[in-house]
Design a protein around this nucleic acid. Structure first.
Lengths: 368, 368
DNA sequence: CTTTAGCACTCTTGCCTCTCAAGTGCTAAA
DNA sequence: TTTAGCACTTGAGAGGCAAGAGTGCTAAAG
């Protein structure tokens, strides 16, 4: 009962045929597909063996065989020929990947949408920081007597701003005092350090504008919270309906609802494990979540730099074209890593990217 | 052949029963539901009359009747009792509506998600400006020798920023010159006015930092374009699957794909017509888009202020609980109008809102 | 003129049965 | 070890049948 070369060939043919057609495949069909010089009876024997070994399943007697999760696993690990993206494919992706605005959240969201569009599966995308985010700098800009803008920049080079309208008048010196105070007392501290004590001493130091400071600090806290909260973006759930395993509306709806929950998902893929930008495949029961036990997840991680990492992936039936999907995902992940400038340059910004600046860094601009 | 009081009562009962059960309703059932003191035969006669008048349809002989689009129309216009939201309902919505960050785009997106969640229908939300957006002010903040932040504020009080990294060093005086130049030459102008000529003269005036200016201006142009481009946010397409009219996967998928296209939609609802914050109902064939001919759209518009308006709505089968949906939508639209401070105060901002500031203006804070 | 009771008619739905085709497992021979 | 042959299993699909729901029509009653 061993995995001979012919059996591997048969298994691979079954997986690939089933991926393509979604229909159980019989012994006769295999003979032709895999260019095997043997009769269907021989193949039947091998198929029976493969089933005994756990690589194949029978939906019912007298239907053909379909791959089991274990069968998909060995296919992904050993039998699968890695797909090379065609020029057209990469060109298409690059075209869409050209993003004007590069605010972290929007880029991730957009990347997820693209992945979904190019794979025809629902996608998810998220980013997560390893370190605590802090604010490194504040600037207050006076607009008129009762409004000003606060600009805050984090250690991850994200810049946020907010316009304040006040009921009472303020003066330039007041703002400057406030600005100095913020930059001395409220920089380099993670969210937890924004204690009541700190606020109290700051309030005293602020003198006449003690009311203002709490406004600005609460903005700062929002910025920190927003930056740390890694939200999961999902897109393209509708693509599920294109696959025959989701003919059943109930089933499709359940999975879609699970994906829409958008908590949970973030815990599912601990970004531990291989730090490299490899792809990972989770087949059916390999998933922890009960809701995903009969679906597969393919994901790739990418490097954002500034102590942050991201994950992007797709969800679908176990019958997935793993070869193509992994190729597309890893291409997308690589491009995201490049887009964010790897860990070196900190290009991450909260608004537009200049067109044509820094030619040596902006490689992805040229691929367009 | 006229619409007697009893017939109206029957029609209303049919619509409401059908909305609830999604099943054709027969003459006997109506008798009980509508408290009519007459036999099923009488009702049958009236139903036949209502069908002849075009208010009802028969899926096939010997099934009950269902409302036609025309039937829904008269129901919405004349027969429907307007739904009052319960305290629990409003409380629930208010709870979720409490938004920390109030960047226009995010608020709209979030509002759409809430609407979908509270109505169980797919939702869409968009904002659109009446006037051209211009930038009223620039601020350049120096970070170090080769990076600075540009902050730009539009006439709609939206503030955007961007961090620039440069290959070469800059000095404070250079930045100040640039800043002044931007504020004199590139403010108050809509996107089209950013001509090559303008750039050329600005470049000359910029002297040594002529390279920088094009970077910043291209950022400004992105901001303007971004602000003018009214994107449609859709959410909760999966809810379609909860309704029996979308048992058919094909049908559901078609509509979902249409919604995901997210162009088209914006043109469908010309924000002309009633400017008030009323709700509108488009029933089946009343929709212009071919894809929506057998679905209904309910929408409400709200006022963003600063010359901008927004629309929020849901899409679903013609069998919709119009009473509840319109109530929920108009409540949401009202709250959005309030949130944005109506046309009076220009609270619209690109980041956090102070908690507890300006008590007289921030009414919605107290409803929480 | 309007309402009601009665009845024949229509049409869908669910269920049962039957047949067909596909594919298997097993056995015996090459 | 491979192959040919054959009996067996099973799901999918077609057809038929009965039940149930609802209608339209007619004739009588208010």
């Amino acid at each position: 009962m061993e995995l001979t070369a012919r059996r591997r060939k048969i298994l691979r043919a079954i997986v690939e045929y089933y991926i393509e057609t979604a229909e159980p495949v019989g012994s006769k069909a295999i003979g032709k597909l895999a260019n095997l010089d043997c009769s269907s009876a021989t193949i039947r024997n091998d198929m029976a063996a493969l089933e005994k070994m756990g690589y194949l399943e029978q939906p019912h007697t007298s239907a053909g065989r379909i791959p089991s999760p274990k069968g998909y696993r060995i296919y992904v690990n050993e039998l699968m020929e890695h797909h090379k993206l065609s020029i057209q494919e990469t060109e298409k992706m690059n075209e869409s990947l050209h993003l004007k605005m590069r605010e972290l959240d929007r880029v991730i969201d957009q990347a997820g949408k693209l992945v979904s569009q190019f794979t025809n599966y629902p996608s998810f995308a998220l980013a997560e920081g390893k370190e605590r985010v802090t604010i490194v700098r504040y600037d207050l800009l006076m607009i008129d007597q009762n409004s000003f803008i606060c600009v805050a920049m984090t250690n991850t080079n994200v810049v946020k701003n907010k316009l304040f309208h006040l009921p009472s008048d303020i003066t330039e010196p007041q703002l400057q005092l406030l600005n100095a105070l913020l930059n001395t007392s409220f920089t380099g501290k993670p969210l937890e350090a924004f204690s009541a004590d700190l606020m109290e001493t700051a309030r005293k130091a602020a003198g006449s504008s003690y009311g203002l400071i709490s406004l600005v600090v609460s903005f700062a806290m929002d910025v920190l919270q927003d930056a740390e909260h890694s939200s999961v973006h999902t897109a393209g759930a509708r693509h599920l309906l294109e696959h025959p395993e989701y003919r059943d509306v109930e089933k499709a709806h359940k999975l879609m609802s699970y994906l829409a929950k958008d908590d949970g998902l973030s815990e599912l893929f601990p970004m531990t494990g291989q730090d490299g930008s490899g792809t990972r495949v989770l087949i059916g029961p390999e998933n922890v979540a009960e809701e995903l036990k009969d679906t597969s997840v393919v994901l790739a991680s990418y490097d954002i730099g500034e102590g942050m990492k991201g994950v992007i992936g797709v969800v679908g039936p176990t019958r997935m074209d793993y070869a193509k999907i992994t190729a597309k995902l890893s291409y997308m992940a690589d491009n995201l890593s490049k887009l964010f400038g790897g860990s070196s340059s900190g290009q991450l910004q909260s608004a537009a990217q200049p067109k044509g600046l820094n030619p040596p860094k902006d490689e992805e601009e040229e691929q367009k």
